[in-house]
Amino acid sequence: MELFIEERDTVTLVHVKEERLDAHNSVDLKVKIQELFDTGKKNVLINLQDVRFIDSSGLGALVSGFKNASSHHGNLKLASLQPQVKSMFELTRLHRVFEIFSTTAEAIDNF
């Protein structure tokens, strides 16, 4: 899976550079998020701008990341969801769990 990671102030910004986040590649994202919290990162922002398609394993990887954040007293937030991806969060009620922002800039201001 192609991920681009950069630091912006106190936030670790993870750009998911994939069109699909599915059962084929979601484990990579799950492992990377776990690694970030395990190495002491506290604020992780996932930029989903390039992700056009997400399935239940993609959602599961993000849920895993959210729980990892909580157990490390950190935060995991999401930004730039495409409409169909956002509708999957709504269908599975996960929009009530995650803090979701329209842009990465807006998300960074809210950590």
Binding site: S56, S57, G60, V63, S64, L91, T92
Partner: peptide
């Protein structure tokens, strides 16, 4: 149907299909 109050990593696929 999944328990929406519980944050499980898996178990949403079948719900999505049925929905």
């Amino acid at each position: 149907k999944p328990d929406f109050e519980k944050l499980d990593d898996s178990g949403r696929g079948v719900f999505i299909i049925k929905s």
